[in-house]
Simulated assay, not measured.
Amino acid sequence: MPYSNRILIAAIAIGLAALAGSGGLHAQTKTGAQKKIYCWNEGGSKVCGDALPANAADSARTEISTKSGMQTGQVARALTDAERTAAALAAETASKQAEADAMAQRRDLAMVESYMTEADLRRAYGERTELLDETLKASTLGVTNLRLSLLALLRQASDREMAGEVVPKSMTNTIRGQHDELLRQQQILVAQKKDRAALDADLQDAVARYRALKAAPGESPVATTGASAPSSN
């Protein structure tokens, strides 16, 4: 074999050997880096080992590198079914709250963009207040008329009984029907009064938010005076 060929073959052989040695060292380093010591609590005592037994798979543990002796990880214990359910409910609650907060921000932004002045805001609430006040008047009048009509029927029925007469079934049915309707209208009136009070509270809250949003940076919003929207009363 010519001298030049022998040199070429030797160079190739040395290169291959160096490459193989490099790969082997890399693999060994990689394997060594992956080896860990696991430490967990078992029966109130700390236990460590290079393998994690099945009964400790759900336990909280610390992972330590065998190469550096340094902690490389911390794994929390697995949650119980009850804890997972509670965590899911908490996440759902937080998500709903975040959605509500975002909606409130959009509402406040729309309020500021819709009303140039506080007077405009109060005027808009005033229209709703007047409408609700008119509804309350009509409902109150209706309840009063029903009560008077029912009292008149009861008086007629009482007079018949005092005279020894039989109260007609039609009258009894009318009395019962008007009594039920009176109860229903009274419940409606109570609900409407609650809506009216809630509208006043909503106005004060809206005014406070409006002033806070309109205040220049660094300024404090003007305190709410408690003035309500115009009423038809």
Results as ranks from 00 to 15, higher is better:
Asn233Glu: 09
Glu161Ile: 06
Ala229Pro: 02
Met111Asp: 13
Gln71Phe: 12
Leu150Gly: 10
Ala215Thr: 08
Ile188Pro: 01
Ile12Val: 12
Glu127Phe: 08
Ala86Ser: 15
Arg147Val: 01
Thr80Ser: 15
Gly23Asn: 11
Gly142Lys: 02
Leu183Met: 13
Glu134His: 01
Gln28Pro: 04
Gly142Met: 02
Ser95Phe: 15
Ala87Arg: 12
Ala33Val: 11
Thr66Tyr: 03
Gly44Arg: 03
Val75Tyr: 09
Cys39Asn: 06
Lys67Glu: 15
Arg184Lys: 08
Ala157Phe: 00
Ala20Leu: 13
Ala229Ile: 00
Glu130Gln: 07
Ile7Phe: 11
Asp81Val: 15
Ala94Thr: 10
Ala11Glu: 11
Ala91Ser: 00
Asp195Gly: 01
Val47Asp: 06
Ala76Pro: 05
Ser65Ala: 12
Arg84Pro: 05
Glu83Val: 13
Asp120Met: 15
Ala119Phe: 09
Glu127Leu: 03
Gln186Thr: 05
Gly126Phe: 07
Ala76Gly: 12
Ala86Trp: 03
Ser231Lys: 12
Ala18Ile: 14
Ala138Thr: 00
Thr85Asp: 12
Glu118Leu: 04
Gln178Gly: 08
Ala60Thr: 09
Val112Glu: 10
Ala20Gln: 08
Pro53Leu: 10
Leu131Met: 01
Ala10Ser: 09
Ala60Gly: 13
Ala88Asp: 14
Thr172Met: 15
Leu151Lys: 12
Met1Pro: 14
Leu132Ile: 01
Thr144Ile: 06
Asp202Ala: 15
Thr85Gln: 14
Gly126Asn: 04
Ile14Gln: 09
Leu141Val: 06
Asp120Pro: 12
Gln71Asn: 08
Pro53Ser: 06
Ala17Leu: 14
Gln187Val: 03
Ala100Ser: 15
Leu183Phe: 08
Gln204Thr: 02
